[in-house]
Design a protein around this nucleic acid. Structure first.
Lengths: 252, 252
DNA sequence: GAACGAATGTTCGTATTTGTTCGTTTTTGA
DNA sequence: TCAAAAACGAACAAATACGAACATTCGTTC
C-alpha cells in the first residue's frame, strides 16, 4: 500500500542497503529533498521504515513506532520515578514487573542491583535485564504483542500465581480521581491482579499524565497499593484518601 | 530506535568486532570524537552498548560469548541447511522451533515467509522473527538461560502440549551412528519430545559436526523424523536405515 | 477549455546535529 | 603515590535537516 512507485523502490533499496539517505534518493529520482521527506514520512508512519536524521533505516526490533514514541513521552519524569522505585527495591528481592513504558524504565534502573529474581510478561524488560548477570529472569509464556513487547494470553495470569513476590512493580494506563488504577486491556488486568494477590509490596509507577487519562477497566484501588511513585501533584482529595488507606506517595 | 545512521552501523560493527573505539569510529565516519561520544552515550543509555573508557563493548547480554562463537561455527553450512529447511515450510504453517544455533539460522530464513505461527522456547528466535510482521510469535514461559537465550523449566513442555504443529524444527547436540538424536539437557529433551508428539512433520536441522559429537540423553530416533537437513555425508549404514525408516535426507 | 485534485517545488521559521572550546575525571607509567 | 596524557562531558555557536504553508505544474473530468 504505497502511494507511488518511488516508495516501493525506496523500500527495496532500504532492504538491500540497510539504509537510505534523503539526499541520495533526491538525486536518484531527481526530485527535491522535500518530496523524498514526504515519502519517508509516509513509509515511517506505516512502520515500514524507521526515520532517522538524514534518511531512514529498516525498522528493527520487537516494538512498534507508536510505543517508541510513548516511551519518549516524559522520558525524564519516568526515569526519575523509576530511579526512586528501584532505590526502594533491595538486592536479592523477588519482583514482578508488568507491561508498560514506566516499568521498563524501572528495569533499566535495576541493572546494578544484585541477585534479583524478576518475573515479567514484558519481553523488553527481559531483554534489558539480561545485561544484569546476577538477575534471574523468568518470562511468562504467551503471544508476543508487537505493539508493546508484551506477552499476553490466558496462561500468563496462571503462571504468575505460582510465585510469591516481595514486590510487584506495576504500571497502568490511567488513575482516576477516586484512586482506581485503570487499564485498557482485560487480560493484562488479570495478570496485574494475580501479581497483586501474590505480592508483599505493591509498587505503582505512574507519571502525572496518568492522572489526566481515562481507561475502561479497573485493576484495583490505590488502597491496595503499598507505594505510589509519581512526578506530579495529586488531587488533594486523593492525597487525603491515600493517607487514610496507608498508601505512601513518593513524588520525585 | 536509533537516531542516526551511524548508530545503526556502530551497533553492527560492535556486534561483529565485539568492541568499538571512539577514535576508530571518529576516523571511519570522519566526524569528531565528541560526536561519536554522543552516539555511544545514547546507545549505552538504551542498553544496546556498554560504555568503556575509549570506546564501547557489546553488553554482556542475553547470550554469552561461548554461544556466540558456537553460532559462528560453520556459519555458512548452517545458513545453507536453514535455507533448505525454510524453503520446505509453506506460508501460513504453524511451527515449533527449539533451542539451538541452527534453528536460529532457520528463523532468519523465515523472515520473508507470511502468516506463520511460530511457537518457541528460544528468546533469540522470538527477537529475530519479531521483524516479520505477519508472523505470530508465541513464547513458552520459563527461566531465561543466558547461555543460549533458552527458556527452560517444567512448564515449557506442558505449554507445548497445548498446540498442534504442522512442523517442528528441531536442533540437537549430537546424532550418533544408530540414528539417535542426543542432547545435554534433560528439560530440553522433554520439550522436544512434546513437540514431536504434537507435530505432523518433524524436521531436524544438524550440520555435519553433530555426527562427530556425543551427548548423554536421547531425544528420539531419526526413525521418528520426517526430514533431516544436513550439510555432510552420513555414514552409509545410517543412510540405509533412514531409507528403511522413510526418513528423508536433504544434503545441501 | 475551465475547474479540480494530486503530486511536486519553493520558501521560511524551527529543531536537531555537529564542531569547538574548556574544565574535570580517569588512565597510565614512572 | 604522583604527574602527564588521554578521555570525558558540558556549554555554546554554526551548520544542517526538518516540516508546515503556500505556489506551481500536470493530467482528468465535466
Amino acid at each position: 500500500m504505497v502511494s507511488n512507485f518511488r516508495q516501493q523502490e525506496i523500500l527495496e533499496l532500504a532492504r538491500k542497503e540497510g539504509k537510505v539517505t534523503v539526499d541520495g534518493l533526491a538525486e536518484i529520482y531527481d526530485v527535491t529533498v522535500q518530496t523524498i521527506r514526504r515519502d519517508l514520512s509516509e513509509l515511517a508512519e506505516t512502520g515500514r521504515l524507521e526515520r532517522v536524521h538524514g534518511g531512514a533505516v529498516i525498522p528493527s526490533g520487537v516494538v512498534n513506532i507508536v510505543y517508541n514514541e510513548r516511551r519518549r513521552l516524559n522520558e525524564d519524569g519516568k526515569r526519575a520515578i523509576a530511579a526512586a522505585c528501584a532505590a526502594s527495591i533491595p538486592d536479592g528481592a523477588s519482583v514482578f514487573m508488568n507491561i508498560g513504558t514506566t516499568t521498563e524504565a524501572v528495569a533499566r534502573e535495576l541493572l546494578d542491583h544484585e541477585n534479583l529474581l524478576v518475573v515479567t510478561n514484558n519481553l523488553n524488560i527481559a531483554n534489558t535485564l539480561a545485561a544484569n548477570h546476577s538477575c534471574e529472569i523468568i518470562l511468562t509464556g504467551g503471544v508476543l504483542r508487537r505493539a508493546d513487547g508484551g506477552l499476553v494470553g490466558g496462561l500468563t495470569a496462571e503462571m504468575v500465581k505460582q510465585f510469591k513476590f516481595d514486590f510487584s512493580v506495576l504500571g497502568c494506563s490511567a488513575i482516576d480521581e477516586d484512586g482506581d488504577l485503570l487499564d485498557f486491556d482485560g487480560q493484562e488486568i488479570l495478570v496485574s491482579r494475580s501479581a497483586i494477590q501474590r505480592s508483599r509490596n505493591i509498587m505503582v509507577v505512574a507519571d502525572h499524565h496518568k492522572f489526566q487519562r481515562k481507561a475502561p477497566l479497573t485493576i484495583c484501588s490505590l488502597a491496595d497499593v503499598t507505594v505510589l511513585f509519581t512526578d506530579g501533584a495529586l488531587p488533594d482529595k486523593l492525597v487525603g484518601d491515600c493517607q487514610k488507606w496507608g498508601t505512601d506517595i513518593v513524588n520525585v
